[in-house]
């Protein structure tokens, strides 16, 4: 099952259309879309770490524990390009400049807490990689916009809020610089692969929530650069944003489809057959809980090793006239079964 999570509808539109996803009615406060065969779902979380984490909880909380191993979660969306330092010109090979790339994220940092996360990058497709920093504000946003309305322009409170806002903004930049500064130095000194740092407002929150349910090999972050923060007027060009996301949808699709193909191909051992056989043997042998666990292990091994467990069991039973009266006899029969299967 592929669970895609995006923050905004304009980010999701291209993927929804290409995968022919249809609106899915759910009890949760998030718009949700699903493929016809049910194997891909896309959820729109809204902006910010908290709502993104809440969406993750809703999405993954639906699954039974044993079903979670079949889930791959993809955070797909837009981001800002915070920093790029390179000693190799990637645009020569891709024909694109850095701010038109869809990146696969290999490291996530939560700007507020400093926590870092590392997804396992096991899908081999030719996407450039980058690290991402997740913050609580739009990159470069003037925090004064968040001050309380109604304050007197000249009031002490207003001035104090303005000072705090200015220092908050500086702190954002200072925090970002602290996270990325030393790495840039290392990269430029060592002439290794280019380092690109992106910025968004959801990814680390999604990882932090999702890792409670999934392993790092099940978490994927695809981010397309749509801006370098807001412009001087504090706005993002919506039309340009949509155009970019259409391009990125084409780039993301092969990755998502590869995940979907792998999910479908993952062979599952016929544990249902094993379970039925375990039940049959346990009942016949009047098995205690301990005996049931032994039977489960025997049946599992025997099936993997190519034994016809049912036939062996019937042969063992035949030596007891086909019946087992009680647990004492059951233990003897179980030992007989074990000796045959385990080669003892």
């Amino acid at each position: 099952m592929i669970e895609i999570i995006t923050a905004l509808h304009p980010e999701a539109e291209g993927v929804i259309r290409r995968l022919s996803l249809k609106t899915e009615k759910t009890a949760f406060p998030f718009h949700s879309f699903r493929s016809e065969d049910g194997s891909i779902r896309l959820t729109i979380s809204g902006t910010g770490k908290a709502v993104a984490a809440a969406a993750v909880g809703c999405i993954l909380g639906r699954y039974e524990r044993e079903e979670l191993s079949t889930v791959q979660l993809v955070n797909y969306g837009s981001c800002a390009l915070y920093q790029s330092s390179s000693t190799r010109n990637e645009s020569e090979s891709t024909g694109q400049t850095k701010n038109e790339e869809l990146y696969l994220v290999n490291k996530l940092t939560d700007l507020d807490s400093g926590a870092t996360y590392y997804p396992d990058l096991l899908v081999r497709l030719n996407l450039p990689e980058a690290e991402i920093i997740t913050g609580s504000r739009v990159l470069g946003e003037n925090p004064e916009k968040n001050t309380k309305q109604g304050l007197d322009e000249d009031s002490d409170d207003r001035r104090q809020m303005a000072n705090l806002a200015a220092s908050d903004g500086s702190r954002q930049m200072a925090s970002l610089a602290a996270v990325t500064g030393r790495q840039s130095e290392f990269v430029s000194n060592r002439e290794i692969l280019p380092s690109v740092t992106l910025y968004d407002m959801e990814a680390a929150g999604i990882y932090e929530a999702a890792r409670l349910f999934l392993g790092p090999h099940q978490l994927h972050f695809l981010k397309g650069v749509t801006d370098q923060g807001i412009d001087a007027n504090g706005r993002i060009d919506v039309a340009a944003f949509r155009d970019r996301m259409e391009t990125y949808a084409d780039m993301a699709l092969p990755y998502i489809q590869r995940l979907a193909d792998t999910s479908r191909q993952q062979g599952r051992f016929p544990h249902e057959q094993e379970a039925a056989l375990e039940e049959k043997i346990s009942t016949a042998l009047h098995a205690s809980v301990t005996m049931q666990l032994q039977i489960r292990q025997l049946v599992r091994y025997a099936a993997l090793a190519g034994f016809d467990v049912e036939k062996i069991f019937e042969q063992c039973m035949a030596t007891h006239d086909g019946s087992c009266r009680d647990r004492r006899e059951g233990k003897l029969l179980l030992e007989q079964l074990r000796i045959v299967i385990a080669g003892d």
């Binding site: 290999n106 490291k107 590392y118 290392f186 392993g215």
Partner: peptide, 16 residues
């Protein structure tokens, strides 16, 4: 190359 603070941040991740 990805820089990390401590090897356990990668090696000890849950659910690998």
């Amino acid at each position: 190359v990805i820089l990390i603070d401590h090897y356990k941040a990668v090696f000890n991740r849950r659910g690998q």
